[in-house]
């Protein structure tokens, strides 16, 4: 009985995860500029993959511990890589979407490039 409840909870969690993975990809596809895309991509895919992993751990007995470790590793590294991408692409000269206001980061980048 407990297996049954945990298993179907896992199925629902995997459904949620897969749906958010899809939403992340849709956000990548639809949103207008790089930073907004990065926002959708990071948040939705992180929740998606974490929820999928935990769901699979609940369905298959005995996998939960490793899947939790995997989920924690993903939660730790995904924001870091998206931060690195955002910072790098601003410095590589990607212009933000034209409605971006205010742009306080531009001052810092300009100041740093003037110093060189």
């Amino acid at each position: 009985m407990v297996d049954l409840i945990l298993g179907w909870t896992g199925v629902v969690l995997v459904f949620i995860g897969v749906f958010f993975l899809f939403l992340g990809a849709l956000g990548i596809f639809r949103l207008p500029d790089l930073f907004n895309r990065l926002q959708a991509g990071t948040k939705a895919t992180t929740l998606g993959v974490v929820s999928t992993t935990i769901g699979v751990g609940l369905i298959a007995k005995g996998w939960l511990v490793f899947s939790l470790a995997l989920a924690i590793f993903l939660l730790m590294t995904n924001p870091i890589s998206s931060h690195a991408l955002g910072r790098a692409s601003y410095r590589a000269g990607v212009k933000p979407y034209k409605g971006t206001n205010p742009d306080l980061y531009a001052e810092k980048v300009k100041k740093e490039s003037d110093q060189k």
């Binding site: 995860g17 897969v18 993975l21 895309r37 991509g41 993959v49 992993t53 995904n78 890589s81």
Partner: peptide
């Protein structure tokens, strides 16, 4: 731009990690 491609790649790899888990 190339940065957009990198963002696409980032998302792609995360989705594929989830796909591996489902395949497992």
């Amino acid at each position: 731009t190339n940065s957009d491609r990198a963002v696409g790649l980032d998302t792609w790899t995360t989705i594929t990690t989830g796909f591996w888990v489902i395949l497992a």
